[in-house]
């Protein structure tokens, strides 16, 4: 069984300059307990993909189309409001980029975790509070009682992100969507939070989708990685194999731009050009205008995501 099963997902937003396609025919899946990283530049459609699975985008203006969009076997395309509310937070939980703005400023952390628990299970307020305290202790918060009674503005970003994770765990979700969970944090805190997410994932045996623009984050936390560009999947495979032998020119370019990966004093290689304008995407492969090895065919036809080795796939005419 697949926990997350997306086939041919398209997400678009009508704008004055035309229909902006944030995601253009994306296919991916996550097995129970598996961790998947979605890597890409900003605007590649990775966050929108997560929001679309949980149907968190405002529709309209957003338009979602997919051949398949399933979460734990439920067809999310057809889920109604009540069904969505019962799945969010319990089957699938999500943590966000900026913990400072993710909590309601006028309620305590304890209140906000307890209300999440009570939204999904019939427990009393005091039981929910006691549970919230346990959860805070599980995310390695040293003084859970004090944090429980704190308002968001009284806590640091790292502390709030821990509380956010505790809140996400409150109904033992089968999958956790983590949308750039460390981008807004201090570098020293980032490693702690990633370590925590990894430990918690193993402890709870849940699936994980880690959205990030940082290949370093992916290397530390996930088993498998999907590389996105221009709203499409460029390459997919086990994280170590991708790092060792990237097949797609875009992935290769991305890896070439990480400092410290190549031994010796070598100049980093940047990817020339700019990300495609989602209102007017290039024809054919979205990467071809910036690709060092593009052929005439790349501008004409879109290469499909095709398997070329066990557990690996790439969308490139040169790889097939």
């Amino acid at each position: 069984m697949r926990l997350v099963d997306i086939k041919d997902l398209t997400v678009s937003f009508p704008q004055t300059e035309g229909l902006v396609q944030a995601v253009r025919g994306l296919t991916l899946h996550v097995a129970p307990g598996e961790s998947l990283g979605i890597v890409g530049e900003s605007g590649s459609g990775k966050s929108v993909t997560c929001m679309a699975v949980l149907r968190l985008l405002r529709e309209p203006p957003a338009r979602i189309a997919a051949e398949r969009l399933e979460l734990a076997g439920v067809d999310m395309r057809k889920a109604d409001r009540r069904q969505l509310a019962s799945m969010r937070g319990s089957v699938a939980a999500m943590i966000f980029q900026d913990p400072m703005t993710a909590f309601d400023p006028v309620f305590t952390i304890g209140h906000q975790i307890a209300e999440t628990i009570r939204a999904h299970r019939a427990v009393s307020k005091s039981e929910a509070m006691a549970e919230a305290e346990d959860l805070l202790a599980r995310v390695r918060i040293k003084a859970p009682k004090a944090v429980l009674q704190s308002y968001p503005h009284q806590l640091s970003g790292g502390m709030l992100q821990r509380a956010m994770i505790a809140m996400a765990l409150s109904s033992r979700p089968q999958i956790l969507f983590a949308d750039e969970p460390t981008t807004a944090l201090d570098v020293t805190i980032q490693a702690q939070i990633l370590q925590l997410i990894k430990e918690i994932q193993a402890e709870y045996g849940m699936g994980l989708i880690m959205v990030t623009h940082d290949l370093g984050v992916v290397a530390e936390t996930v088993d498998r990685v999907v590389v996105m560009y221009g709203g499409r999947v460029m390459e997919e495979g086990p994280v170590q194999e991708i790092f060792d032998a990237a097949a797609h020119p875009y992935t290769q370019a991305l890896l070439g731009s990480i400092p410290g990966r190549v031994a010796g004093r070598q100049r980093l290689t940047e990817i020339k050009g700019a990300s495609p304008n989602p209102a007017h995407p290039p024809s054919g492969c979205p990467f071809h205008p910036r690709c060092p090895v593009a052929e005439p065919r790349c501008a004409a036809e879109v290469p499909a995501l095709a398997p070329f080795a066990p557990a690996r796939a790439a969308a490139c005419w040169r790889v097939a």
Binding site: R88, T101, A102, D104
Partner: peptide, 21 residues
């Protein structure tokens, strides 16, 4: 505000999101 998206993502009923938060 971003926290409203978070409230939706944790499965709170819309009525409660509007009237309480």
């Amino acid at each position: 505000k971003p926290f409203v998206t978070v409230l939706r993502a944790k499965g709170l009923p819309e009525r409660r999101i509007i009237f309480q938060h």
